[in-house]
């Protein structure tokens, strides 16, 4: 065939074929989404600090292990209250002439998804210790430590932000580690990562492949909620597997008067709305974990009962009905 023996024709045909398909599946869709690219009405632009933090996030290759997309899959529910939509990425733009737009979505989840990390883990103390050395708060973590974002000082100044590094990670040093500006920028970026609510009247896409629901149905709805697993997923990173917390950062639950006491209203309120009552003792504020994770009364009950019966705690079990009542009350007080 003549086409095959004429290099000009052959390679022009192949190139045209390839470029044509490329235009159809890459360029046109990309240009189109670029054209209709609009952020959600409630979306907040990154602060200048957070913008710098994002650059640090990119420079250190955090994208290699952390995704920022909640897939429309039931199993991704833990990472956000709704699946990600195109508009969530609308504010992600080319930062300057040297760099491309950040590939936030990622393709590996060696570490947790960060779409909603600003809500899930807003604690400054936790994030700084975790960046200094992740294993200080999550023993099993394989995340790299970022000690170069911190400076060692024998005598930190009053304005310095001191990190609560546990003694075993101080390598015998007696001074303090202080967060650099870079650490604070990165923190600002992480704290800014919050899933924006869809405007009123818009329904979020469905979570597909619901198998957790099917499972409980099959078991007759009486499936036992695993309080220990829920504790691991939602509470352990701060209060630790031992229930002892981290001195100077996160209070212990072991022997805690709230956990083992009778004031269930306060207990449920802390889980659902967060708590700042112990800041004077040096403990950071607790975020509204229960609301962020969208925990059901059964799940909150399971967590409470797990905490009341672990690490030597031996308080009587609480009932779902009571917890549900106090959760409704907590919702009201959060709304005020």
């Amino acid at each position: 065939m003549e086409l095959f023996d004429n290099h000009k024709k052959l390679f022009t045909t192949a190139a045209a074929f390839f470029i044509g398909l490329t235009t159809l599946v890459a360029i046109i869709p990309a240009v189109q989404t670029d054209k209709i690219n609009q952020p959600l009405p409630g979306a907040v632009k990154l602060s200048p600090d957070a913008q710098k933090g994002k650059a640090i996030y990119v420079a250190n290759g955090c994208i290699a292990c952390h995704t920022q997309q909640v897939r429309n899959l039931d199993m991704d529910k833990v990472w956000g209250k709704r699946p990600s939509v195109a508009a969530d990425y609308a504010l992600d733009k080319r930062p300057d002439v040297w760099h491309n737009t950040a590939t936030l979505m990622g393709s590996e989840r060696t570490g947790p998804d960060l779409t909603n990390i600003g809500n899930r883990q807003p604690s400054k103390d936790w994030n700084l210790v975790h960046l200094f050395n992740p294993r200080a708060v999550v023993k099993e973590s394989v995340m790299p430590a970022y000690p170069w974002l911190f400076i060692y000082k024998e005598q930190p100044a009053k304005t310095d932000i001191v990190v609560n590094v546990p003694a075993e990670f101080m390598e015998g040093k007696t001074g303090k580690y202080v967060a650099t500006k870079k650490a604070m920028y990165l923190l600002a970026y992480l704290q800014s990562l919050k899933q924006t609510d869809l405007p009123d009247g818009t329904t979020a896409p469905d979570f597909l492949y619901k198998q957790a629901a099917a499972k409980t149905d099959a078991a007759g709805g009486g499936a036992k909620v695993d309080g220990a697993a829920l504790y691991t997923a939602n509470c352990q990173s701060c209060h630790q597997a031992s229930g002892e917390g981290l001195p100077g950062a996160f209070p212990p639950l072991k022997g805690s008067s709230v956990v083992t006491g009778d004031n269930l209203e306060l207990y449920v309120g802390i889980i659902m709305n967060g708590y700042t009552g112990r800041e004077k003792e040096g403990f950071g504020p607790m975020p509204n974990v229960g609301t962020t994770a969208n925990l059901s009364p059964e799940e909150v009950t399971a967590i409470i009962n797990h905490e009341r019966s672990s690490w030597g705690n031996s308080a009587p079990e609480v009932k779902v009905d009571d917890v549900k009542r106090f959760m409704d009350a907590a919702k009201l007080s959060a709304g005020q």
């Binding site: 390839f18 869709p29 990309a30 240009v31 670029d34 690219n37 990425y89 609308a90 491309n100």
Partner: peptide, 24 residues
């Protein structure tokens, strides 16, 4: 030939905002 095209699609700036970047 194809790789030159691919590199252009990847590095040219006109379709790289938001989701366009992911598609590229």
């Amino acid at each position: 030939i194809f790789t030159i095209v691919i590199a252009l699609v990847a590095y040219l700036p006109w379709w790289q905002n938001g989701l366009g970047e992911t598609i590229a």
